[in-house]
Design a protein around this nucleic acid. Structure first.
Length: 262
DNA sequence: ATGGTTGTTTAACAA
């Protein structure tokens, strides 16, 4: 089974790229973030035409929005709200093999890494605190996968320069502390670093603002796939589809991140 | 140190 996560930054604008992902990588499950549309205008039929007939979506106007597009049946679908907001950042569903899939879009957090001066940063930290508390309270042993744009690059080599990124939102110590606490709260295992040694640079996002994203290669690993420990032996391979950062005519600034679980 | 781009929706906001 192949599971993908992709911050698509408008699902309507980039349906063509999603069809290409289906043709070239054929994920069984595609988890999307930043769909940026209400559910009535989500391109359900285009996904169904590619075999993704099982769909769980939660969108709003203009911002955020998450979706799980699946070739396998989905059951027990639902969503979570965090930090007293209903901003369409977390949905989940169960696959036929009883694995629970969570698709999460963590707030980006704005530019100033100070919760007192920046409400968006406070929201991001609170979101992660609440995730940690909720996952800690879940004691069941059901196998689970949690994926998405977590908007935090936790490890030294998850950014192009640890030194130059230390005060930049997405790589500050307090964000890394919150993300790590959330990870520990349910023994989540980092499925991508299972395959890519921590000493190796690994990115899933490149800014639109770079004149030439390939030349500067100032990336960050913001998109993650974590699994519960019981699934670790089932991890078969991973793909970070770097080429998709150049897919035309208008690429997302994030690329698809995938694992094969067998 | 600064500014650089994109998407949604139409001037501002979020990323």
């Amino acid at each position: 089974m192949r599971v993908a996560t992709w911050n698509i930054n408008s699902v309507r604008l980039r349906m063509g790229l999603l069809e290409r992902l289906s043709d070239e990588a054929a994920p069984d499950v595609i988890c999307l973030q930043e769909t940026k549309t209400i559910d009535d205008t989500f391109p359900r039929a285009a996904f169904a035409a590619k075999g993704y007939t099982h769909q769980h979506i939660l969108g709003m106007k203009s911002y955020n929005g998450v979706a799980i597009m699946s070739r396998l049946p989905l059951s027990n679908t639902g969503h979570k709200n965090w930090h007293n907001r209903e901003d369409c950042r977390h949905i989940f569903a169960t696959l036929p093999n009883n694995t629970e899939v969570h698709c999460v879009y963590v707030p980006a957090g704005g530019d100033i890494p100070d919760p007192a001066a920046n409400d968006k940063f406070a929201h991001k930290l609170g979101f992660m605190d609440e995730q940690a508390a909720w996952w800690k309270s879940r004691k069941d042993k059901k196998p689970k996968i949690i994926v998405g744009d977590f908007n935090v690059a936790p490890l030294e080599h998850d950014v192009w320069s640890h030194k130059q990124m230390i005060d930049v939102v997405s790589h500050t110590p307090v964000e890394i502390e919150k993300l790590t606490a959330w990870q520990k709260a349910h023994n989540w295992y980092d499925a991508i670093r299972h395959f890519v040694p921590e000493s190796e640079k690994c990115y899933s996002w490149w800014s639109y603002r770079a004149a030439d994203w390939t030349a500067s290669n100032r990336g960050r690993r913001l998109d993650h796939i974590w699994v519960t420990p019981d699934l670790q032996p089932a991890l078969k391979s991973h793909i970070i589809l770097r080429d998709a950062r150049g897919w035309g005519p208008k690429p997302s600034d994030h690329v698809p991140v995938m694992v094969d679980i067998g």
